[in-house]
Design a protein around this nucleic acid. Structure first.
Length: 183
DNA sequence: CAGACGATTGCCT
DNA sequence: GGCAATCGTCTGT
């Protein structure tokens, strides 16, 4: 069973989308080959008031994508060397997105599950760069999401604080916007 | 236009 | 645990 997720999937409250993304697949077509990961960890950045979000300082050349309609990728460059990928959520003009932090895949040769953890390692694995910024998630753009029949029990989702946002005020720094699957 | 710093990673002690 | 790498983005002058 393979069903491509439409923009509607992401046009819902950001925290709802974030949880729902666990167990879905991020699929990439690159140089004729298809690479995919089952998403295992995400973080939500929700709205103009979220002090941990890039959008908390308003619309800028970089963050304007976060104000776009749901279902586009927000890819940005950080620390002078890393790309990080988000999917924009919620209605137009409401800045929100879900950062994809980790995923896993089955290595048929080694016959083992391989975890790709860390948002920058994930983009490196899936060959995602600024070229994908602003693109809509669908097959045509060679980067999209699929539901492949994996059902996630709520009990297997852990909520925690987001990583690397200690610069934000306590309310936002401590908000439980990071979700990951138990192993 | 200068300066600070980052939604990170990998290597070192 | 500490810290360097490395440059785009944002802020304040």
């Amino acid at each position: 069973m393979r069903k491509t997720l439409s923009c509607d999937f992401f046009d819902r409250p950001t925290l709802v989308v974030a949880r729902a993304m666990l167990g879905k697949y991020l699929v990439r077509k690159y140089r004729g080959k298809t690479i995919s990961l089952m998403i295992t960890e995400v973080e939500a950045y929700d709205g103009p008031l979220d002090r941990a979000s890039h959008a908390s300082h308003g619309r800028t050349p970089r963050t304007k994508i976060m104000f776009d309609p749901a279902g586009r990728f927000y890819v940005y460059f950080t620390y002078g060397m890393h790309w990080l990928v988000n999917i924009v959520t919620g209605p137009e003009d409401y800045p929100a997105a879900v950062l994809i932090r980790a995923g896993k895949y089955y290595d048929a040769e080694k016959r083992e599950l391989v975890l790709v953890n860390g948002p920058a390692r994930l983009t490196k694995f899936l060959k995602i760069t600024g070229a994908q910024n602003g693109k809509i998630a669908r097959k045509k753009t060679e980067l999209w999401f699929e539901y492949r029949g994996v059902r996630i029990n709520r009990r297997n989702i852990i909520a925690s604080k987001r990583i690397g946002v200690d610069y934000a005020s306590p309310i936002w720094r401590n908000k439980l916007c990071r979700f990951y699957l138990t192993t």
